[in-house]
């Protein structure tokens, strides 16, 4: 369990990125921090592994105040996946994945063998092991990034807009893959994105952030969709534009769902207790 307790972060240039932020991130669940730029979501994420230290307040991991932990040791037991993969260009795929275990003192041979298994886990062909990052596609690089994040078998996986830079088709693929992984591995995942659809797709708990890290609403995707806490949330999730306000229309060929502008959005299947209007 990760717990933020009254965390504030003011950068040296005076920017107040996060103000008095408190939140519990349950273990073995995916928590998605979602907000537009300037919402402090990346700062929040980077405070968990002490890439950024809070100006005041503190963060606990399983009841332990992280400010008492050595940052480097802390980072080695937390997986981190970032946008554009952040792979080291001069290391082969296999050595990129093995980076953290090697830093932790695992023998290189063993670390490489483990890394090969991780390539399987993230759905990469083993033949890619000896390639350099620049020889991979964007999607493949992100998978390597995820494999590296998992290499030290961390309980916590931090993901900073990991799929932000790949095209929509690959992104959808990676998202599905992450859902599968999470089912298998059961990690505590903290995921940052500005894409609300991605947040709803991946999150067990979704945190919608306003400027300065103020929490607009916390809840499951269903709770947020069903009852947006305020105008901001409604706008952010697109409820106001009617994109999410679907209604049933009877057509000669059957009932379909349409959005508020009358564009077809889907069909009704199975039993429903919704009364068609």
């Amino acid at each position: 369990m990760i717990e933020f307790r009254g965390v504030t972060k003011q950068f040296p240039d005076g920017t107040l990125a996060v103000k008095d932020f408190s939140l519990v991130l349950p273990s073995r669940k995916t928590t998605v921090l979602v907000g537009s730029s300037g919402s402090g979501k990346t700062t929040l994420l980077r405070m968990i592994n002490r890439m950024v230290d809070p100006s005041s307040g503190y963060i606990e991991i399983d009841g332990e105040d992280t400010s008492h932990l050595e940052p480097v040791a802390l980072r080695r037991r937390i997986g981190y996946v970032m946008q554009n993969s952040g792979l080291l260009p001069h290391l082969k795929v296999i050595d990129n994945v093995a980076t953290v275990p090697v830093l932790n003192g695992v023998a290189k041979k063993q670390a490489r063998a483990d890394a090969l298994h991780l390539l399987d886990t993230v759905g990469l062909d083993r033949t890619l092991a000896d390639r350099y990052p620049s020889q991979l596609s964007g999607g493949q690089q992100q998978r390597v990034g995820v494999a590296r994040g998992l290499a030290a078998d961390p309980n916590i996986l931090l993901m900073d807009e990991p799929f932000g830079a790949v095209d929509p088709i690959v992104r959808a693929e990676l998202q599905t893959e992450l859902i599968r992984l999470q089912r298998e591995l059961d990690k505590t995942v903290v995921f940052v994105t500005h894409d609300i659809d991605e947040a709803f797709l991946l999150g067990d708990q979704v945190v919608i952030l306003e400027k300065g890290g103020r929490i607009a609403q916390v809840g499951s995707p269903a709770e947020i969709l069903a009852a947006p806490a305020n105008e901001f949330v409604a706008t952010f999730i697109g409820a106001d534009k009617g994109k999410r306000a679907l209604s049933i229309r009877n057509t000669p060929t059957g009932d379909i769902l349409v959005d508020s502008e009358g564009r077809p959005a889907g069909v009704l299947v199975g039993e429903t207790d919704v009364v068609a209007r």
């Binding site: 980077r46 592994n49 890439m51 480097v72 040791a73 802390l74 980072r75 080695r76 037991r77 981190y80 970032m82 554009n84 993969s85 952040g86 792979l87 080291l88 260009p89 980076t99 953290v100 830093l103 590296r148 994040g149 931090l158």
Partner: peptide, 14 residues
């Protein structure tokens, strides 16, 4: 690349 350095720090390099 700054991102490579950032990533190196994030995975726990001193």
């Amino acid at each position: 690349d700054r991102r490579a350095i950032d990533a190196a720090r994030a995975v726990g390099m001193t």
